[in-house]
Simulated assay, not measured.
Amino acid sequence: MDIKSAKDRPARAASKDHFTGAVQITPVIEAEAPARLRAASVHFPAGARTAWHTHPLGQTLLVTEGRGLAQRWGGPVRSLEAGDVVWFAPGEKHWHGAAPDSDMTHVAMQEALDGKVADWMELVTDAEYGAG
């Protein structure tokens, strides 16, 4: 058994290369091999979002607070609220973040493939974000 105290898992600012806005990421699970599960609690202030990205083994989001938005490539922008669970299939290009008028926090869960959990792409434009 290994217990990780909350004080030993401080939030950190998300990379401006991969996120728009002052996003904060708090590690939840960073399991060592042979386990592959990774999880983080991600807080998005209103209007903040990820860049377009994919996950080699897919991703599950559990919205824990607030309201958000998500979109897969070629699909409509979808609304999210606390309690919603979202699944993105392996290789599915997508983004997610807070609604324009609400903060949003979710737990993002994904498995690592050869140590990699995401492939990051271009930032979501204001026009793409505003399409919702």
Rank of each mutant, 00 (worst) to 15 (best):
P90T: 11
V23F: 07
Q110W: 01
A35C: 07
G47P: 13
Q110E: 12
A39G: 11
V77I: 04
R78D: 01
E65L: 04
A127M: 03
T54Y: 09
A108F: 02
G132Y: 02
W73Y: 14
A48Q: 10
P45A: 08
K4E: 15
A14D: 05
T105A: 00
W95H: 08
P45G: 09
T54M: 06
G97N: 04
P10V: 05
A89V: 09
T20F: 11
R9E: 02
K7F: 10
A127T: 14
K16A: 15
V117W: 03
V42K: 00
A22R: 05
A13E: 08
A39M: 10
R49K: 10
V28A: 13
D84A: 05
S79M: 02
G91N: 10
T105S: 01
L113P: 00
H55A: 06
E128N: 03
G47H: 14
W52M: 09
A82S: 14
R72K: 12
D2C: 04
L62Y: 13
T125P: 07
A46M: 12
A48P: 09
A131D: 05
Y129F: 15
R36C: 11
T105H: 00
Q71E: 11
R67E: 14
A39R: 11
E111N: 12
Q71S: 06
E122G: 09
V117P: 01
R49E: 04
W87H: 15
W52H: 09
D114H: 08
P45N: 10
H106I: 02
M109G: 03
L37Q: 13
W120F: 15
A33I: 08
D103C: 01
R49S: 06
R9A: 13
A98L: 00
S15C: 07
H96R: 01
A48M: 06
A13P: 03
T54G: 08
A40C: 05
P34C: 12
D103E: 13
L69P: 00
G68V: 01
Q71T: 06
V77E: 06
